[in-house]
Design a protein around this nucleic acid. Structure first.
Lengths: 127, 127
DNA sequence: TCAGATACCGAATAATTTTTCGGTATAGCC
DNA sequence: GGCTATACCGAAAAATTATTCGGTATCTGA
């Protein structure tokens, strides 16, 4: 929850899209909900490399942006579930494109990632 | 140029893709180069809501990741041009998907963006 | 030689995002 | 009442990313 000091050009489609689901974990959260993982505790377990707090925060931002809706059923234990709105559903193909690209190139990405790390380490030592 | 302290799960396609072109301006830069805007000074002018320094830095990261290549032609004035590699070309459809989604929904995004800003302002006043 | 254009880069700072930590609340079960 | 599970939230800290500022270097034509 921060108020941006820097204006973004939301007339640019790319910028607008990144504004809605360009955060570190938002695509993963939307993807997970799209796969039927809907309860907060399930999401916390499913995205176990992410702190639960971020998931909660980003979920509430996604609610603000009309990407997901929160439904509370009376029951035990407290039963909360998030679902995609039509707007959220419309993002799925885009995330799917991201996912396919990443899956297709992940080996290359891993190598280049390591290479960049070494380069930075070398720079740090040299500097 | 920072060494990440937090590991990312690059086996997740989404995470891998975001690693390569998930930064604030990278999709715009890749898109611009794809549209034929290739020289640094042109890019600086084209992406005029972005500081030239970020463009330079992100360009060099894109070079590191094999997304673009830098070509220097002897000539005047110093003639540098960046082009997409095959890997870079393969990202274009994904960015295009982002762009289409954003263009289709940008009016809604603008409204929701403003609404979120007001909400945050109200929170700040209340808190 | 000097101005002007191009292309960079380093370092400090500012802005933003992510994480950690610890707290609240509700409900059921023993 | 103590214990567990679920679901949150605030505030501070840490990590990351973006921006500003000022510098270097090359070339060319005036």
């Amino acid at each position: 929850m921060y108020e941006r000091k820097i204006k973004e050009d939301l007339d640019c489609g790319i910028v607008a899209a990144m504004r809605v689901f360009g955060a570190k974990w938002k695509p993963c959260i939307i993807d997970a909900i799209g796969r039927g993982i809907k309860r907060p505790s399930e999401l916390h377990r499913y995205l176990d490399t992410t702190s639960p707090r971020v998931i909660d925060m980003q979920l509430s931002e996604l609610v603000d942006f009309g990407v997901v809706v929160k439904e509370v059923s009376p029951g035990f234990p407290l039963n909360v579930a998030y679902s995609l709105t039509p707007l959220g559903e419309s993002i799925l193909p885009v995330i799917s494109a991201l996912d396919h690209w990443g899956s297709r190139h992940k080996d290359q990405v891993k190598v280049l990632h390591e290479r960049q790390l070494s380069r930075n380490r070398a720079k740090l030592v040299a500097g």
